[in-house]
Each structure stands twice: as C-alpha cells, then as structure tokens.
Design a protein around this nucleic acid. Structure first.
Length: 437
RNA sequence: GUGGCUAUAGUUUAGUGGUAAAACUCCGGUUUGUGGAACCGGUAUCGAGAGUCCGAUUCUCUCUAGCCACCCCA
C-alpha cells in the first residue's frame, strides 16, 4: 500500500465478523460465568485441561466427514502444507488427549475445560463464529452413576448462578431407545431411520399436518404407532404404548434408573423427551439437554450424553465416557433474562486523589505499602480539581477515596471516604487496610 | 452458502435531492480539598466505494457489517 493510500484508508474499529470484543464490562460478565462454572465443577473433583485452538484437519474428517470440515470450519493450509483446522468443538481434542496417554492415566478421569471454539457460519443471535464452551467429561465409568453425576453437576451450576429449579428442566432420552424404536419397533432401514431422526428434530418448525405427511411417507404402515409414541406425554405412558416384551429393554431400564437416581438427589425437574435427538453421531446411551422453561428462550443451555465408542477412531480400546457442553452466549442470555448478572463493581478498593503536586511522592509511597498489604489501589495524576478526581472514582465504581495533600503529608492521618454512604473515617496508614476491606 | 430487513454523533433515535436535529453519555469550562446537580461550549467527511444529477446523507448498484429466517447445529 502506498503512503497516499494508507493515509486515505482508515482501518475499521469493528471486530472481525462473528467474533466479540470484550471491553472491561463484558469481560467482567465473562469472568463471572467462567468463575461460577469452575467453582462448581472443581467442587465435584474435576481437573482443568486445555489444548491449542489448532488441530490437524483429519481429526474432524475422521468423525464428521468432508462436508463439515470444508464448509463449517476454519480450515487452511499452513506454510508446511499441513491442513489445519481451528477447533470447532472440544470432544475430539479431549478424546485425542485421553487416547494418547491412555496407559499413563488412571481412570476414572474427571476433566473439564473452557475452550474457545470456531465455526464458519452465518452469525445470528446466540450463534457466533467464536464462542466459549464449558466442557465437562467423565471417562472410564460404565456405571449409570456417571450420567447421574454429570447431570446433577449441570443442575448445580444453574443453581449456583441463582436459578430456581422451576426456571429450567432437564430433558432426557437414550440413544438405545431411539435406535431400538427405529430398528425393532418400526423396522426401518438405516437411511430411513436417519431421515426420521432429522424429521423429529425439526418437528417444531413445521405445521402438524406437514409433519404427519412426512412421517407417513417414511414410516408407512406403522405410522400410527409412531405417532402415538411421539405424542406420549410422559415416560410411563411411552412405555405402556410399547409391546410388553419391549418394556424391559436396556435403554428403557437405563433411563428409568437415571431419572430415579436424580430424584433421590433432589433433582425432580427431569422430563423424558422422546423427541430429543442431539445430532446423530457419537452418542451411544443417555442423551440430555437442559432448557429454560421460559418459552421465549428455546435454545438449550446444556447438552450432552454418553459416548462409549469415541476412542476407537484412534485405534484404541473403547473407554466409556459421559460429558456435556455449555455455551457462554446462551448462558449469558439466560442470566440476563432472569436478571442474575451481578452489578458492576471495580476490583480497585481505594482511589487516591492528589490535591497538589508536592504530595505525589508521598501518595505513591502510601499506595505502595497498601499494595504490599494486598489492597488494590490506584492514583490520580491528572492534576484536576478534587471534585473531578472523586467523580472519576464514582464513575469507575471504586468504593473508597482518600485525598492526599499538604495536610495529610504533615499529619499522617487520612480521611477515607466511603463512596456508597458518603461517610468519612479518619485513619492512620495501618488502619486503612481494615476500613477498605 | 441462500433469501428478507437494516446502517445518521459514543448510545438511542429525528430528518431532508441543496452538506443535518434531539436526548443521554463523553471531553472542556463556570465554583482553587471532596462525587452523583445546574448552566455554557465541543464532538457526525449521515457504514465503505461507484453511478445518476447542476448538486446525494436522501435515488440506483456493488461491497461490508448487524438482525431475522433457511441450511446446519459438532
């Protein structure tokens, strides 16, 4: 670019399409979400891991197919002719990590991470090109207690944010039930089963008549049975529709057990939802999502399930695994809806206004010794009027202010002003720490 | 990737084929050691580029971005 051009063309201050800037206000919200996630997850004994955003493209090709990699990921060739992808999800990465050190790790593993993920698609509300997602996985536990633990952990997270149990619901289904109904009950071919799963996923997006027509075309003779199953309102009812020998089938028994065990833990907002599909690839057993019960927000907040076969793509023995993901964007929208985001505050506890230049060195010394006592302090070098300096502290939500001038330098006594109440306390240096805490 | 709608100060919004108005915010000032007030002043090449026109922020086209829907949802 010539000098003339560079002068004429201004660089835009907008961020790249579909990604966000986190100014301090947004960063505070992000931190609140991440910290709450971490706190609860660590309370359950999960350990944090991470990896690079860059992965070899083949990691996703193996599992997800060419189309997905080419059209919905950021994939490019590096200078060494390697195909690289910006990770669009964390599960293949964690599976790769576990498979890579399978013999060194002692199972069960309780692992979590909060990675940023990228997908190349048209941005819209609640769906951007970069987002962060809490990933929680429990590897090496066959027992159904694994899904019980993971689901109860997810519920605890929502409670920790201040949500009431009636504001959200856990929807649960089981891949085995889905496959069983498709293959054994309806006797569908693999292609038709796949098409039907997609159709069920989109049920809410079409008129009932259209749905019925499409079901008819796919399922044929057994459409009436299918409709009865899909419309049943609860688990008991669903089971009662099945032929008697099928009622004790594995998937049914598992789901019953998970729901009962969650109830024992005081989690009663669990609904069996036979229409819950969750993609269509690596899940092998229980699948679940947590929804906001407010109909305005139909996006799921958490989603996950059991995937016992995933490590096979690395040529390893299978390792039973249960996990879920939770996106930061949906989480934020949810907390906003219910007014659960914390009020803005500053981490700075004390603001030192300087009344005259001669007091600057003294004020710096004071700040330094307060910092040694782990008090967060900042100083005002603007030379502005005291009123303006106090106003700055107010606008930046700093809770305490003191003014340093000739008087304070001489006396060593400070007036510590509480900005919320307007009240001032006179203190010597040692007492400041207590007041400001 | 496809389609629809939108784009005016930091923000939210007026408005017009003859270079723009308000509210709030921000910055500066009116009160020389104490904030949230009042008053005064400042801040917009009207998203970018091209075209039509004597003249475009206003009309047309292209691009970019946002929103919505489709697709997809790991």
């Amino acid at each position: 670019m010539s000098e003339k051009e560079s002068k004429a063309k201004k660089i835009s201050t907008e961020s790249y399409k579909g990604v966000r800037d986190f100014y301090p206000a947004e960063m505070a919200v992000q931190n609140h979400i991440f910290n709450t996630w971490k706190q609860v997850v660590e309370r359950f004994g999960y350990q944090e891991y991470n990896a690079s955003v860059l992965e070899p493209a083949e990691l996703y090709r193996a599992k997800s197919g060419e189309e997905l990699v080419n059209e919905q990921t950021y994939t490019f060739t590096d200078r060494g002719d390697r195909e690289v992808t910006l990770r669009p999800e964390m599960t293949p990465t964690v599976a790769r990590m576990v498979a890579g050190k399978k013999r060194e790790l002692s199972f069960p593993l309780r692992w979590y991470s909060i990675p940023n993920l990228f997908r190349y698609e048209q941005p819209q509300r609640g769906r951007l090109r970069e987002h962060w997602q809490l990933n929680v996985d429990l590897f090496g536990a066959k027992s159904l207690q694994a899904e019980v633990e993971v689901i109860s952990l997810a519920v605890e997270i929502l409670r920790a944010f201040g949500l009431k149990d009636q504001q959200f619901a856990v929807r649960i289904n089981n891949r085995k039930i889905v496959n069983f109904v498709m293959n054994e009950v309806l006797e569908l071919s693999e292609d038709k089963a796949h098409a039907l799963a997609k159709l069920i996923d989109r049920k809410a997006k079409m008129p009932a008549s259209e749905f019925a027509e499409k079901v008819e075309a796919l399922v044929g003779l057994k459409s009436d049975l299918f409709k009865e199953l899909i419309n049943s309102q609860n688990f008991e009812n669903f089971i009662s529709i099945l032929p008697v020998p099928m009622r004790t089938y594995e998937g049914i028994v598992e789901t019953k057990s998970v729901i009962e065990n969650l109830e024992k833990l005081g989690i009663t907002n669990v609904i069996f939802d036979q229409t819950l599909m969750r993609g269509f690839d690596y899940y092998t057993g229980t699948i679940f999502e947590i929804f906001d019960t407010n109909p305005d927000n139909r996006r799921s907040v958490f989603g996950g399930g059991r995937y016992d076969d995933l490590l096979a793509i690395f040529g390893q023995e299978k390792v039973p695994a249960v996990g879920f993901g939770a996106g930061d964007v949906v989480m934020k929208d949810l907390l906003e809806t219910y007014g659960l985001l914390p009020a803005e505050t500053s981490k700075t506890r004390l603001y030192i206004a300087i009344a005259d230049d001669g007091a600057t060195a003294f004020a710096q010394d004071l700040a330094q010794s307060l910092r040694e006592a782990e008090v967060s302090v900042s100083l005002d070098y603007s030379g502005k009027k005291i009123g303006d300096q106090v106003k700055y502290a107010d606008k930046n939500k700093i809770p305490f202010v003191t003014v340093i001038g000739a008087d304070e330098v001489k006396s060593g006594k400070f007036k510590i002003k509480n900005m919320a109440t307007g009240e001032e306390k006179v203190a010597i240096e040692k007492e400041i720490v207590e007041i400001v805490k």
